[in-house]
Amino acid sequence: VTVHVNRYTYHFDNPEEAEKFAREMAKRLNMTVEIHGNTLKVE
């Protein structure tokens, strides 16, 4: 599972951890999480 935050890319083996990380980053940056299959984008 890949998480994109701005120009950074993070890889996770565990989808739940990836989503938790993405949501935490989105909250911190006041952004939203978009899910595209195995890719989560924080925008």
Rank of each mutant, 00 (worst) to 15 (best):
A18D: 00
E19N: 07
K41G: 05
T9D: 03
A22T: 02
F12S: 00
V1Q: 03
N14Q: 06
E34G: 07
V1K: 04
T32H: 11
E43V: 15
E17W: 05
A22W: 02
Y10F: 12
L29Y: 13
T32K: 13
E43F: 15
V42I: 10
R28V: 08
V33P: 02
E43P: 04
F12E: 00
R28G: 04
V5F: 10
R23Q: 09
M25T: 07
Y8N: 11
R7T: 11
R23V: 07
A26F: 02
M25E: 06
T32D: 05
H4K: 11
P15S: 11
K27E: 12
E24Y: 14
A18V: 01
K41I: 15
P15K: 14
R7E: 12
A26G: 04
D13Q: 10
F12R: 00
D13N: 10
R23S: 06
T2K: 08
P15E: 08
Y8V: 13
R7L: 08
H4F: 07
E17I: 08
R7N: 13
H11Q: 07
L40N: 04
T39A: 09
E34N: 14
V5L: 08
E24N: 09
H11V: 10
E19F: 15
V33K: 01
I35W: 14
E19I: 14
I35P: 03
Y10L: 04
A18H: 00
P15N: 08
G37D: 07
R28W: 09
V42T: 04
N6W: 13
E16C: 11
V42P: 04
E19R: 09
V33F: 05
T39L: 10
F21C: 05
N30D: 06
N14F: 07
H36W: 10
N14L: 07
T39D: 09
F12A: 00
N30F: 05
V33G: 01
R7F: 11
F12T: 00
N38Y: 03
V5T: 03
K27T: 11
K20L: 12
E34W: 10
E24V: 08
K27F: 11
H36D: 12
K41V: 15
L40S: 04
N38T: 08
E24P: 00
T9A: 09
T32P: 05
F21H: 01
T9R: 09
N14C: 10
F12H: 00
F21P: 00
T39M: 12
M31S: 09
A26Y: 02
L29G: 05
T9P: 04
H36C: 14
R28P: 01
N6V: 07
E19P: 00
R7I: 08
N30K: 06
E34H: 15
D13R: 06
E17C: 13
E24F: 12
E34V: 15
I35V: 12
M31R: 04
L40M: 12
E19H: 13
V1R: 05
H4V: 14
L29S: 03
N30R: 05
H4T: 12
N6G: 15
N14M: 06
A18Y: 01
E16G: 08
V5H: 04
Y8C: 15
A18R: 00
M31T: 13
N30I: 02
N38G: 07
K41F: 15
G37L: 06
H11R: 06
F21N: 00
E19Y: 15
E16P: 04
E43G: 15
A18C: 02
V5C: 13
A22M: 03
Y10R: 03
V3S: 01
A18E: 00
M31G: 15
V3K: 01
V42G: 05
T39Q: 11
G37M: 05
V1D: 01
A22Q: 01
